[in-house]
Nucleic acid binder design. Structure first.
Length: 301
DNA sequence: TACACGTGGAA
DNA sequence: TTTCCAAGTGT
C-alpha cells in the first residue's frame, strides 16, 4: 500500500519491517543520544567489530561527553584510551576533529554533511552515517554491509568489489527512499541486515526478509567470480611491528628507551633488521609517537 | 586505483 | 592452525 503510493524500491518496506523487529539494542542507537557520541561510535566501528567497541565507547562518552572535553585532552591520553581497538590514527583524528569542532563550530558537531565530511577522519561513509543516524537526514549510507546486501539482492553477486565503485554508489542513491525519515530507517535497516543475516561468510538466507526478491538466490547462490577478494597480510608487516610498539607505549606513562622498544618488537618478529626503526620513524611521522631529546619515546603530549 | 593502516575472534 | 573478516579513511 505505502510502496504503491511512494514508489519505493520493493526491498525497502520488508527491510524496514525486519529491522523494527530484529534490531540490536545498541547504546548509540538509544533515543536522544547526541551526535557527538554517535560520531564516536561510527569512528570506533570503522573496521572494528561491535562487541569490541561497546566497552570503550561507554568509557569515552562518560569521560569526554563533548567535543570540548576531548579537545582539552592530550593526544597521548586519547590514544591510550583507544586501547586495543586498532588503527590508533582514528583516535588521533577524532582528537583533531574535536579541536576543529571547538575552533570552528562553537563546540557543536555540525549538522551539515559537507562540514562533517571536512572533519579529520570523517569520510564519505561516516559523514553520511552521522547525518542520517544523528540528524535524520537523507543520505546514501554505504558501508561494507550495505554493499554486500546490494551485491546479492540487486546485482546477484556473492560479494561486492574490493573497492567502492561509482556503479555501487549510483545504485545506493537509486534505492534511497524520497522521504528522509524513511530513508534513514532504510539506511540503518540494510546495514543491520548485512551485519546479522546477509553476512560475508555464511549468510542466513532462511532468516532473510527479502530472500524472495534476492537476485543472488534466484541465480542459485553462485560462488564469487571476478578479481580475488583482497586479503590482509599480517605476519612480518609494518602494521604488526607498529602495533607492538604502540602497545608498549600505551602500557606505561614513563617514556621508553630504544632498548625497551626493542624488547617490544624483538628481532625475531622483524622482516628485516631496520624494520623497527623504520616503523618507529613512521609512527613519529604520523604523530602517534613523540620522540624526546634524551632519545626516549612516549605517546604525544 | 590500489595500498597501508591494528586487533582479535570465529570458522 | 590458518584464513577470513569487522559500521573506512587518506594518500
Amino acid at each position: 500500500m505505502r510502496q504503491q503510493t511512494t514508489g519505493e524500491h520493493p526491498l525497502v518496506e520488508p527491510v524496514i519491517a525486519w529491522y523494527d523487529a530484529n534490531a540490536r539494542d545498541l547504546p548509540w542507537r538509544a533515543p536522544g543520544v547526541p551526535a557527538w557520541p554517535v560520531l564516536i561510535s561510527e569512528v570506533m566501528l570503522q573496521q572494528t567489530p561491535v562487541n569490541r567497541v561497546l566497552p570503550v565507547w561507554r568509557e569515552w562518552v562518560e569521560r569526554w561527553p563533548t567535543p570540548a572535553a576531548l579537545a582539552a585532552e592530550t593526544p597521548g591520553e586519547v590514544i591510550r584510551a583507544w586501547g586495543r581497538l586498532g588503527y590508533p590514527r582514528r583516535a588521533l583524528r577524532l582528537h583533531e576533529a574535536a579541536g576543529v569542532i571547538v575552533e570552528r563550530h562553537g563546540g557543536e558537531l555540525p549538522t551539515d554533511h559537507a562540514q562533517l565530511l571536512a572533519l579529520p577522519g570523517i569520510g564519505t561513509y561516516t559523514a553520511a552515517a552521522v547525518a542520517t543516524f544523528a540528524y535524520g537526514q537523507r543520505h546514501a549510507v554505504v558501508d561494507v554491509n550495505v554493499r554486500r546486501v546490494h551485491a546479492r539482492a540487486v546485482t546477484g553477486d556473492a560479494h561486492p568489489q574490493n573497492n567502492l565503485s561509482a556503479a555501487e554508489s549510483a545504485l545506493a542513491q537509486r534505492l534511497l527512499p524520497e522521504h528522509p525519515r524513511t530513508a534513514a530507517r532504510w539506511a540503518i535497516g540494510v546495514m543491520e541486515l548485512g551485519a546479522l543475516v546477509c553476512t560475508a561468510r555464511t549468510p542466513r538466507c532462511g532468516d532473510c526478509p527479502v530472500e524472495h526478491l534476492c537476485a543472488w538466490r534466484a541465480a542459485g547462490s553462485p560462488a564469487h567470480d571476478g578479481p580475488p577478494r583482497r586479503g590482509q597480510a599480517w605476519a612480518g608487516t609494518d602494521r604488526q611491528v607498529r602495533g607492538k610498539l604502540m602497545a608498549a607505549l600505551r602500557a606505561t606513562r614513563t617514556p621508553l628507551t630504544a632498548a625497551q622498544l626493542r624488547e617490544a618488537a624483538p628481532d625475531d618478529v622483524l622482516k628485516d633488521p631496520r624494520q623497527r626503526e623504520r616503523c618507529l620513524a613512521g609512527l613519529v611521522e604520523d604523530g602517534l609517537v613523540e620522540p624526546l631529546p634524551d632519545d626516549r619515546y612516549r605517546l604525544p603530549h
